[in-house]
Amino acid sequence: MSRYFRELSVVGALAVALIAMAVFAPAFFQPQPLLSLATREAPTLVVACGMALVIICRQIDISVGSMFSVVSVCTGILAARGWPLLLVLPIAAGLGAALGALNGALVAGLRLPSIVVTLATMVALRQGLNLVRQGEFVNMPDTVQWFGLPQATGQWVLVICALALLAALGLGLRHLAAGRFVYAVGTDAEAARLAGIRPQLVTFGVFVFIGALTGLAAMMNIVQSPQVQPLSGMGLELKVIAAVVVGGVAISGGRGNLWGAFAGLLLLACVAPALTHLRIEAYWEKAIQGAIILLAVVADGLRERRQA
């Protein structure tokens, strides 16, 4: 049991938060707002899965927000021009993967620190998008919204898709050799090399993967609203990193799993609506998220110290 202590403690915190909500703000538990919340967070979940992979591999990618915006706008334009969604979907994933491959090549090929590389691509992509689009929105035809389905059905489809992806990736990370390689490289790249794994290739792969997932998340984003904003991905990187770290994925690599990241995301996603229901001003959201990140890393740090 102690092996999953970290994940269980997040689930525990989540349970406490939900019970507190049930007592103090039972209005929080209405199916329709909850479904809307889940739908809004579905793309975030998909990106968080990718971020968990990257962090387990002892890297970080803060360019996901910009990638998300770029892919959203590009695919939004294609979809608005009437391209079939089934064709746009692989394009979204492919474009994301290509952007991720750029990060991956710089990090794995040139051994540059991922934080700085992705910082640079984050700004370059965001400003590049602004340069081309000048902040223009993309108007989406009704046929695209909710895949042309009724809204409730569309929302369910999105949520289920995100959960299915989570399940597939979570299981893959545990039961596929490739998933285990990510852990091995994140734990000790040199030992992994001696065990016949190619750490640089795994690192590259992880960046491609988070790119592709971000592309898919962007796709899930454009079907949600009648307009695609070029700023839709602003701050996404922080949100997913927070979720992943709170969920028990160690920033030093090699430890954690997607289930924990999922719990962490749920906890953080509840902050904003919980604030509204508890009549605390929403402006506290960012501060509370920051505090939760710090709390999580401090707890990890203290725990590590006690063990050492």
Binding site: L238, W284, K286, G290, I293, V297, D300, L302
Partner: peptide, 30 residues
């Protein structure tokens, strides 16, 4: 946080990055 708990500066300052901005927003109510 960095010296006493030996936490990586990257993640600590990522947390305070969010915390400080959040406090500013909270104080001004946006």
């Amino acid at each position: 946080l960095i010296t006493a708990l030996r936490l990586p500066p990257l993640i600590v300052t990522l947390g305070t990055y969010s915390l400080f901005r959040g406090l500013a927003e909270a104080i001004t109510r946006g």
